[in-house]
Each structure stands twice: as structure tokens, then as C-alpha cells.
Design a protein around this nucleic acid. Structure first.
Length: 417
RNA sequence: CGGGAUGUGGCGCAGCUUGGUAGCGCACACGGCUGGGGGCCGUGGGGUCGCAGGUUCAAAUCCUGUCAUCCCGACCA
């Protein structure tokens, strides 16, 4: 993509009414647009990052047999009444609306009921199990207080997966598989080292703990205790839980930290399947209950976390896997030979399917260089006066601008791509 | 939802205390000079001062209400 085709611009200043560093950076760089508190639109660059994150999650979920679906945002009241969750005292952060005829509807904040309802139509035999179904969609929660930019919104992008198993044992196997896939997701996002499986409150359906994935960050909302050697953590909320002792952790010696919850997996037992009448026939012809788990990853929250974590005083600095483009190409100067060389390199990248962002604006060098650092694309190539001298391009990695070097066209493709 | 703060061209801000012609920077448009770290000069367009009442000869400024935004807390099944 050429910058001249892009409608967004970077800015020098960001509204003081946006305090969160992640949102300020993303707004300054033109990745997102704030619609209202806790509600952000994703502009071309931001949409690319969001999709990159979603695709990493998608690949890992597909890799363990997950089947992607798209569920509805509008949900019928009757379905939720069957599980007792329509009541505002049970779930108080729903957006609800009405049909013209007066019927009440829910605006999707989670999809256990609709998923079970839909899957139940097909799930009849032990031969149909296990099942892993997931969705990557916008979800809506009427938070009393949105905060921290993309970290806690009222409309957000979430991956939710739901597992269906024929027995507690089969459920545990699936659950373990999902945990491993989650670990791969965070590793690919570049936050594997600072993200910990964290024991947390399991919710009202089970006496088991749930597992959160907490990424250590000063902007985290949760307080956790971390054991780096065992690569696990404990949410402070379960410090007084009777089950804590069984974990075999010495919480006295664990490190206190703030964490951003970037994932959460629950054991749902048979709560939803029972309530919605979904069961299966076993090999002996008997009806048996279906054991469920649910597994969330906040896609847009991850984008906020990554923006916040991978940044310095010059701007964003995306990990390779989620950057909107791999290469930031920019021409400095209006010399025809420079423009021609930059155009040629741009075409070459495109022909080799290398994702390239080409700053072809007739702007001043300082502005273009500063913008490249703000946008945070991992690899920068400058076509400038050095090219006129000896035909080489100036290369710098966003993470290490001090180690800039000169490369020939061949070296570019041999060393950095 | 409790407490605190803030709303002035697209963005960042000043003006408000002590009421009297709405201003600066950035951005934008045009012209010129520049050309490796957000450069310079000139010209121009764009604002019912969040909204609604009230006080006053007169309100961005004072009063009341309301909406929005941010922060702290509570909440986050």
C-alpha cells in the first residue's frame, strides 16, 4: 500500500480526553478512531493489525480442530430464560433492545446459549463428540465504566470457543489441548515470556478453578502472584479459596504483579447443555449429559496490550506477526532517480508478496522518518542520497534504530526477508 | 453506581477569577523558498464557546439543570 492512497494521517497531538497510552498511540498513528467511550473503529492500518491477531488465533484454533462459526448479535429472550440468565440481577451489563412488536432481545455479550441451541440440533450421538466450535466477533457489554482504551471496551472483538465432550475425562483432554494452543498464541504474539497461566475463580458452575492467561503489565487491572520458574500464576481473588492448597504452590514466595487478562478458560460442566436439553446417546443407547468448556481471547484487548507493551518514546513497535506491514519503504527527496528506485522496489516487494507500506508522500525527511517510527512497522528501508551514491538502501529495524546499515537489493531479500 | 475533574474551529490549548468585537499553535487550501529528523515566509477558509434554561442593557465568562469525556473506587456472572 502507498501512503498516498491512505486517508489517515499521523498527528502531533492527541486529545487529552483519551488517557490510556495504547489508545493515544493508536489514535496518534491513525490506526483507530474513537467513536465514544469504550467504542473504537479500526481504520485501515488498525484493521490490518486486528486481522493479523485474529488470524493467529484462528490458525491455532483450527490447528486443534476448532470449527469457526458466526453467531448472531441479536438474541431471543426465551433462550436465555431457559438458563436463568436473562435476569438483570444475573447479568447486569447487557445491552437489550426490542423488536417493533415489543419482543425483548439481547445484544450479544457472550454466546453459550445460542451455540448450545444451534449445536444441539445436530449433536445426538457419542460419535458426534468431542466438538470444538469458535467464533471471532464483536461483543457488547454495557460496562459501567469503560477504561484503558482498547483494554476494556463496551464493544470489542473477542474469540470465544466452546467445547462439547462426552465425559469429564474427554472434557479434560480437550481443555488441556486448548491450554496448549493458547500458549502458542501468546508466543506467536511476542508476549509468551510475560504471559502466565493463572489460576482464577471458576465461576458459579464448578468447584474447579478457571484458567486465566495474564500478561504482566503495569496497566493490568488484576493483581496476580507469579512463579516464573513454574510458569504459572495465581489470581489474588482466590487467595482465600480452600482449593488453593491443592495447587502445590508456595504463594508466600511468589512475585506480586499486575496482569492484563488476555484469555480465560472455564469448565462449564453440564450447566448449559442440561438447561437447554442437549444430551447424546451413548454406545449402550442411554442418554448422557454433555460436558462443556468455554475459552475466550480478547482480540481487540490484545491489540491494545501489544500497542502498549511494544512501544517506546518514538511510537509503536509491532512484533513481526501482527504488524500491519512487514516493510516500511520510504523515499527521501524528490530526485527522479530516488523516486524511480523506490517505485521499483515497491513493485518488487509486491511481486514477491512481501507486505510493504510505501511512504511516497512528497513530505520532508524528518516527517517521514518520524512517522515511520510512530507507525512501528518492523523493517524500514530508506531510498535516499546513499542510493544516488552507490545504489544501496538504508535499512533499520524498528526495534534497533541505532544499528542502521546499507544493503543492496540482493542483500535485502537475503537477510531481512 | 459513589467521589473528583474537564467540555472553546478537525486536533491541542489560552481567554472565565473581575461579564463588553472569540484568539494562538497544529492541520487544511493557494503561492514562494527549502530538501536527511516534524524547516521558513505570505495569503485564505473554517467556531451559534457541549446542550437547555436563568440572571443581566450585555454571557465563552455568573447561576441551575442536563449530556458527554477522563481519573479513583465499586462492579466485571
Amino acid at each position: 500500500m502507498r501512503w498516498s492512497q491512505l486517508f489517515t494521517k499521523t498527528r502531533r497531538e492527541v486529545s487529552s480526553s483519551e488517557a490510556a497510552a495504547n489508545a493515544r498511540l493508536l489514535i496518534q498513528a491513525g490506526y483507530i478512531h474513537k467513536e465514544m467511550a469504550g467504542v473504537y473503529a479500526y481504520l485501515p492500518l488498525g484493521k490490518r493489525v486486528l486481522d493479523k491477531i485474529a488470524n493467529i488465533v484462528r490458525q491455532e484454533m483450527n490447528g486443534i480442530g476448532g470449527l469457526e462459526v458466526q453467531m448472531t448479535v441479536l438474541q431471543p429472550k426465551e433462550l436465555w430464560q431457559k438458563t436463568g440468565r436473562w435476569d438483570d440481577n444475573k447479568i447486569d451489563n447487557w445491552f437489550k433492545t426490542r423488536l417493533k412488536n415489543g419482543s425483548e432481545l439481547g445484544v450479544g455479550l457472550t454466546h453459550e446459549e445460542p451455540i448450545v441451541d444451534a449445536v444441539g440440533e445436530y449433536l445426538k450421538s457419542y460419535k458426534d463428540l468431542p466438538l470444538l466450535i469458535y467464533q471471532i466477533q464483536n461483543k457488547f457489554r454495557n460496562e459501567l465504566r469503560a477504561k484503558s482504551g482498547l483494554l476494556r471496551g463496551r464493544e470489542f472483538v473477542m474469540k470465544d470457543m466452546y467445547s462439547f465432550a462426552a465425559s469429564p475425562r474427554q472434557h479434560d483432554e480437550i481443555y488441556q489441548t486448548v491450554l496448549e494452543a493458547y500458549g502458542r498464541v501468546y508466543a506467536r504474539l511476542g508476549i509468551g515470556e510475560i504471559t502466565f497461566r493463572t489460576f482464577a475463580d471458576g465461576g458459579i458452575f464448578t468447584d474447579k478453578f478457571s484458567d486465566e492467561f495474564q500478561t504482566i503489565s503495569p496497566v493490568g487491572e488484576d493483581t496476580i502472584l507469579v512463579d516464573r520458574s513454574k510458569k504459572v500464576a495465581v489470581n489474588q481473588e482466590i487467595m482465600r479459596s480452600p482449593g488453593l492448597a491443592k495447587l502445590g504452590l508456595n504463594t508466600d514466595s511468589m512475585e506480586n504483579a499486575r496482569g492484563v487478562e488476555v484469555g480465560n478458560t472455564f469448565h462449564l460442566e453440564t450447566k448449559y447443555t442440561d438447561a437447554l436439553g442437549v444430551n447424546f446417546t451413548d454406545a449402550e443407547g442411554k442418554q448422557q449429559p454433555v460436558y462443556m468448556g468455554c475459552y475466550g481471547i480478547g482480540i481487540s484487548r490484545l491489540m491494545g496490550l501489544l500497542a502498549e507493551h511494544f512501544a517506546d518514546d518514538k511510537g509503536l513497535s509491532w512484533p513481526d506477526g501482527v504488524a500491519p506491514f512487514k516493510v516500511h519503504l520510504l523515499s527521501l527527496g524528490q530526485d527522479k532517480k530516488i523516486i524511480e528506485a523506490a517505485d521499483g522496489l515497491y513493485d518488487l516487494f509486491n511481486s514477491k508478496q512481501v507486505e510493504v507500506f510505501y511512504d511516497d508522500r512528497p513530505a520532508r525527511p524528518g516527517e517521514k522518518l518520524a512517522d515511520s517510527e510512530l507507525l512501528g512497522i518492523p523493517h524500514r528501508l530508506v531510498v535516499g542520497h546513499r542510493f544516488l551514491q552507490d545504489g544501496r538502501f538504508e535499512y533499520a529495524a524498528r526495534r534497533d534504530l541505532s544499528k542502521a546499515g546499507l544493503l543492496t537489493e540482493e542483500q535485502i531479500f537475503a537477510t531481512i526477508l
